[in-house]
Design a protein around this nucleic acid. Structure first.
Length: 845
RNA sequence: GUCCGAGUGGCGGAAUGGCAGACGCGCUAGCUUGAGGUGCUAGUUCCCUUUACGGGGAAUGGGGGUUCAAGUCCCCCCUCGGACACCA
């Protein structure tokens, strides 16, 4: 069957547009018809499934290449086309290198986009989601991604989210999942809470609505327990992940070191603790501020004459949007609570204020204000005419300049600290505090616990039952999964409470402990829970006895290469790293970092800006594929530049890509030697070009310089064309060797063209499994190289020399050059730098 | 404001401190063609010089430095992009 197809794959079988009758070979380029080639090979690949991984008896070494899985919100777009083309080059390369590559795909199928779209169209989110998945799956198949289609998973399948629930309960048991009441980020439009990570510049990352605060009792995962490990384990990722991502993670975790200091408050039994990174400036603390929205502020204001003023201020604070609150240029506001704190080092009475510039949920929600050396404190002091005490002499007087001095300098007005520099003063102050029992060193993080409750339908139900007597009761493991009730009949419109609560039959259950009437937790989980461990599930997505088999995970993980957008630099990657560490502690995995190497591809933009409907600059992938074909689009994406850079579709040429593919493809039709021709007898120059190209392309691919790898393939195509037309001729075995090498190189990026070339060269499918050509080191050695001879750094002559030429010989040769003597103009020679075989630099006096 | 990146032809981009501009797009000329959104050949950083072959000089945002040698390393400045942004 296939051999028949192959053997009569003639170049005359072109499209209708092609001329009839006899014409010269030079016309044959138009015989390249990507439509026909795509239709021919897709079914063959379906049948042969060349990318199944981990089959029994497969003893190739294992490699795990992972693309970030897509949201099924519509068909694939240009961004997908770029990301998956890049991941595919890497995956296909390692397959060619003889690895048993697991390259899976799945769908991140729960979440707000799907649900909102479903509401808008009055549809069922499940049906809508699965339809999109089917659409994307079919597009990906046509796009010829080297996925192992036996490992597909959808996070919205109960077989998958069951294990979300299982993980949640494991964490609940370990105290890592807990419920607490606090002021949470609330999106009034989505009508749901948001994690800190989902608030971007004070706005909802989904709909850009201004985020407000709301006091709610919600489920959290205790990621802060892992803050130090999330930070320290990044040493494993240095050099493997983009430096930028590591930096963003570091900043997000935001570890700071300082001290906790206890301040007595007049009229209060217990002292109040503050956190400061500058305990050395304690003598400069001239007032004390508590977060206006903290419990402490309310308590201190309760029996104060300032009570009424405070209450109205608090109301005012609550009105301020998150957006405005984050504006650091906003004028400081606050209320004097008519209370006093006592500075523990000098006994000074300092006024206590409430303000919204102090955050209730960072540190202790209260600060000692040192206006001379903290800009925010200074702004506040100037606004309310509070005293400013300089304790570090850094030149300018902040009270005059309005600029707080945070620099190092000798301490003044600081008793025993006087004259000390910052580091020394911090040490000394910590000793003083320790001695008096009023403070100790402390570490704080910007990172907060991960809020995972969502008041929406399309997600994983939280497997907890609320019992009036037993409290929070986990759903027994044998009752998992807690499946979502059908959406039909439920009002999914956001209204502040989860739609699941309205599914009365579903929500009403007997308490597993006492049997009394109880209700299910109506919230669903943040979908980042789903994506925090999906890479583990791929080892066996159909395992219905556990989330994953630890033995199989040991075989495949950690992921060797992860490919995805930088948009997930914080959220998804941080959460996944956290999950992995928890699983490590549970003894289920034997590694602490899930993704060994990370590649962040850029975006596809149009004329300098992101594609958007409002801009009207959206390029449709399906249109591009129809005009240029899958291979040309993939090639264009990969050849455009370094993978991390954005691809501007206005700057690239898919038509040029197609022309190159046709040119390469034509080589395969010109070869007249037999498939078993003895390559070693071929034209030496072309053979050298082939082996050089194969060698350099491999190096380029391994260092993510895919555009360079393609340039090497283009050079080889050009050299082969020349050899056929004006060199050794089409019958030379070197031409066959070169054409085959081109086919294999192209198989990474243009699989249809490569497969067709392979067939025309007389081989069985699949070219993807042909194996990367072995490079003969002898053929990488040049017989001669051009040596540049410089005089005073300027090239004055070029010599053809043996690559093995000695330093002495080369020096002699260079000095003998007529051009050199001319350039020297009679000057003497100061020094001669000889770097055989490529360069000599003669420096005149 | 703070912290990161990045600036190379008309364009996308190449270049272990060692001949800047690989490869491609675009453009120009020629050939092929009934025709060209085809194919092939040649050319294409800028300036000066030469009838021509050729020759010379300048050039990797700007300025300094290290070096025999700098797009690459160091310092200052400019521009653009990104991330974070009251985190005490």
């Amino acid at each position: 069957m296939l051999s028949t197809l192959m053997s009569d794959t003639p170049e005359h079988e072109g499209p209708a547009s092609e001329h009839e009758g006899p014409t010269s070979d030079q016309r044959e380029g138009s015989g390249y018809d990507f439509h026909e080639i795509q239709e021919r090979w897709l079914p063959v690949w379906d049948e042969r499934a060349p990318f199944r991984s981990g089959l029994p008896g497969d003893d190739r070494p294992k490699k795990y290449i992972l693309d970030m899985f897509p949201y099924p919100s519509g068909d694939l777009h240009m961004g997908h086309a770029e990301a998956y083309a890049l991941g595919d080059v890497i995956s296909r390369y390692w397959v060619q290198r003889g690895f048993n590559v697991m390259h899976p795909i799945g769908w991140d199928a729960f979440g707000l986009p799907a649900e909102n779209a479903a509401i808008k169209r009055g549809e069922n989110p499940m049906r809508w989601t699965y339809e999109n998945i089917a659409q994307q799956k079919s597009s990906m198949r046509r796009y010829a991604c080297s996925f192992d289609w036996d490992r597909v998973l959808n996070t919205c399948d109960p077989e998958y989210y069951r294990w979300n629930q299982w993980f949640f309960l494991q964490m609940f048991e370990r105290g890592l999942a807990y419920r607490k009441a606090s002021n949470v980020n609330w999106c009034p439009n989505c009508q749901t809470v948001l994690a800190n990570e989902q608030v971007v510049a004070g706005q909802c990352e989904r709909c850009d609505t201004l985020v407000t605060k709301k006091k709610l009792t919600q489920w959290y995962l205790r990621i802060t327990d892992y803050a130090d490990r999330l930070l320290n384990d990044m040493s494993q990722l240095e050099g493997q992940w983009p430096e930028k991502v590591l930096l963003m993670q570091r900043n997000w975790i935001g570890r700071s070191t300082g001290a906790e200091v206890q301040f007595a408050i007049e009229g209060r039994d217990q002292p109040v603790t503050v956190y400061t990174t500058r305990p050395d400036t304690l003598f400069g603390a001239t007032f004390f501020v508590v977060a206006a929205d903290s419990d402490l502020a309310a308590e201190l204001a309760a029996d104060s004459p300032a009570h009424a003023e405070f209450t109205s201020y608090l109301e005012q604070v609550k009105q301020v949007s998150e957006m405005d609150r984050l504006d650091s240029s906003r004028a400081k506001s606050g209320v004097f609570l008519q209370r006093y704190a006592i500075n523990p080092v000098n006994g000074e009475r300092i006024p206590v204020w409430a303000s919204d510039y102090v955050l209730a949920d960072y540190g202790t929600g209260a600060i000692m204000a040192v206006p001379a050396h903290d800009q925010r404190d200074l702004d506040f002091a100037r606004a309310f005419n509070l005293p400013i005490q300089v304790v570090v002499d850094a030149g300018e007087d902040p009270a005059v300049t309005g600029i707080a001095t945070a620099d190092d300098g000798p301490h003044v007005n600081s008793g025993p600290l006087d004259g000390m520099a910052k580091a020394e003063a911090i040490e000394a102050m910590l000793a003083v505090l320790a001695e008096r029992g009023t403070g100790q060193p402390s570490v704080n993080y910007r990172l907060r616990d991960w809020l995972i409750s969502r008041q929406r339908y399309w997600g994983t139900p939280i497997p907890i039952i609320h019992c009036p007597t037993c409290g929070e009761v986990p759903v027994p493991l044998d009752q998992l999964p807690v499946e979502l009730p059908p959406a039909d009949g439920l009002d999914l419109k956001p209204k502040g409470a989860s739609p699941l609560g309205a599914a009365v039959e579903w929500a009403s259950v007997a308490c597993p402990k006492c049997g009394a009437a109880a209700t299910r937790d109506p919230d669903t989980m943040d979908t980042f829970v789903d994506s925090s461990w999906y890479y583990l599930r791929y080892v066996d997505p159909r395992d219905d006895t556990r989330a994953f088999d630890p033995a199989k995970v040991r075989e495949w993980l950690p992921v060797d290469q992860y490919v995805g957008g930088v948009t997930h630099a914080i959220l998804h990657l941080l959460y996944s790293r956290f999950f992995t560490k928890v699983l490590y502690d549970m003894g289920l995995v034997d590694f602490t970092e899930p993704f060994t190497r990370l590649l962040n591809q850029g975006m596809v933009v149009m004329s300098g800006s992101a594609m958007s409907k409002s801009r009207g600059n959206v390029v449709r992938l399906s249109d591009e594929l129809a005009v240029h074909g899958v291979d040309a689009i993939r090639l264009t994406m990969v050849f455009a530049g370094p993978p991390e850079d954005d691809v501007d579709w206005a700057d690239v040429s898919p038509a040029g890509s197609r022309k190159f593919l046709a040119r390469a493809w034509r080589l395969s039709g010109d070869v007249t030697s037999a498939p078993d021709a003895d390559r070693s007898t071929g034209d030496l120059a072309l053979r050298k070009a082939t082996h050089r190209a194969v060698h350099d392309a491999a190096q380029a691919v391994e260092s993510f310089r895919f555009n360079v790898a393609i340039a090497r393939a283009m050079e080889l195509v050009n050299a082969t064309r020349k050899a056929i037309d004006t060199g050794c001729g089409p019958a030379d075995p070197a031409v066959r060797e070169a054409a085959e090498a081109v086919a294999i190189m192209l198989s990474l990026v243009a699989p249809y063209t490569a497969e067709d070339m392979w067939a025309r060269l007389g081989h069985e499918p699949c070219v993807a499994l042909a194996g990367w050509p072995a490079v003969d080191p002898a053929l990488l050695v040049e017989e001669s190289v051009i040596c540049a001879v410089q005089v005073g750094g300027k090239v004055r002559d070029r010599l053809e020399v043996a690559p093995t030429i000695s330093e002495e010989d080369l020096r002699e040769l260079a000095l003998a050059s007529a051009s050199v003597s001319a350039a020297l103009e009679g000057r003497g020679i100061k020094v001669v730098i000889v770097r055989p075989p490529k360069l000599v630099n003669i420096v005149p006096e």
